[in-house]
């Protein structure tokens, strides 16, 4: 599934290449996007590539951003009774958790 998405998106962008001209702002967007992808990379090991889980661990892709952020915040504060996420969420700043919630909410 994510592969097809990647291919479609790539196709779109290759088609747009002729129309869009490159700018510094685009480079900043790319750098920021790459940074978020790096942060989210650690989630994929358990939750599947781009949050599409093939097994017993919950999928994250396409979930509501506010629900994801609420859950992550509860994990960080130790308010949710779960196994490992209470330990992991404490390793991230509130801004990082917000970026992760947004990232996975916007996966199709």
């Amino acid at each position: 599934m994510p592969l097809r998405l990647a291919t479609q998106v790539t196709g779109t962008f290759v088609a747009l290449a002729a129309l869009a001209s490159w700018s510094v702002a685009d480079a900043q967007d790319d750098a920021a996007a790459l940074q978020t992808a790096v942060l989210a990379g650690s989630c994929a090991n358990c939750h599947g590539t781009d949050g599409h889980s093939p097994g017993a661990i919950p999928s994250l892709a396409g979930k509501k951003e506010e629900d994801l952020l609420k859950a992550l915040t509860a994990f960080k504060q130790g308010k949710a009774k779960v196994t490992v996420m209470t330990r992991l969420a404490k390793g991230y700043t509130d801004e990082q958790l917000a970026a992760l919630a947004h990232y996975f909410a916007t996966r199709e």
Binding site: V9, T10, F13, V14, L16, A17, L19, A20, W22, A25, D26, D29, D30, A32, A33, L34, T36, A37, D50, A99, H102, Y103, T106, R107
Partner: peptide, 24 residues
Amino acid sequence: TTRRSFLSLAGAGLALPWLPRPAR
């Protein structure tokens, strides 16, 4: 649509997922 306007759909000042840059 253009790359810029597409990116702006992401909102909140965050870029969409990393997307490959077209050939330059």
